[in-house]
Simulated assay, not measured.
Amino acid sequence: MRALIQRVTHASVTVKGEVVGQTGPGLLILVCAMLGDDEGKAETLAAKIAKLRIFPDDAGKMNRSLRDIGGGALVVSQFTLAADTRSGNRPGFSSAAPPDEGKRLYESFAQNLRSHGVPCETGRFGASMQVALTNDGPVTIWLDV
């Protein structure tokens, strides 16, 4: 699985004018299931993100995890993270998992994150979404598992 995480002070996702998910201080997590991914990868990615020390401690060093700060997560599916731009001008997405499998793994990832004690809201899989965020730091990290 692949994720782009952003440390945020606030993030929200809107579908057709309705806010369907949001978080205060914590992470916006854009996630993509890739071909060959399974439940184990969803669990591994969730565990890694829950424990990743990217929040400042009292000395200002990135030394605290999402769980340490009691932060939340907003998880948004984004198959475009699978974009292959090596040739031509139009990205290819053939390395993304098929939609049914992608949805299952996206939901599994969010549930696994919750099982690690992280309050988690989500976007709406397959919908046209508008994502708003205030990136804190800014801190943006790419993860592949």
Rank of each mutant, 00 (worst) to 15 (best):
M1V: 03
M1A: 10
M1I: 05
R2G: 01
A3P: 11
R7C: 01
T9N: 15
V13I: 09
V13Y: 15
T14E: 11
T14Y: 10
V15H: 13
G17F: 14
G21N: 05
T23I: 14
G24E: 02
L27S: 08
L28F: 08
M34Y: 06
L35F: 02
G36I: 03
G36E: 04
G36S: 03
D38A: 10
D38G: 15
E39H: 13
G40H: 06
A42F: 13
E43P: 09
I49G: 03
A50G: 08
A50S: 15
K51L: 07
K51E: 06
D57I: 04
D57S: 09
D57Y: 13
D57L: 13
G60L: 10
G60Q: 06
M62C: 03
L66Q: 11
L66S: 10
I69D: 08
V76Q: 08
Q78N: 12
F93M: 07
A96W: 07
A97T: 03
P98Q: 03
P98D: 01
D100M: 07
D100C: 04
K103V: 00
R104I: 01
L105I: 04
F109I: 02
Q111Y: 07
Q111V: 06
N112W: 15
R114T: 09
S115R: 15
G117N: 09
C120Y: 03
E121A: 13
T122S: 14
F125E: 02
F125V: 00
F125G: 01
G126K: 06
A127I: 00
Q130D: 02
Q130W: 12
V131Y: 12
V131I: 15
V131W: 08
L133R: 12
T134G: 09
D136M: 07
P138V: 00
P138F: 02
W142I: 01
W142P: 01
D144N: 15
V145C: 14
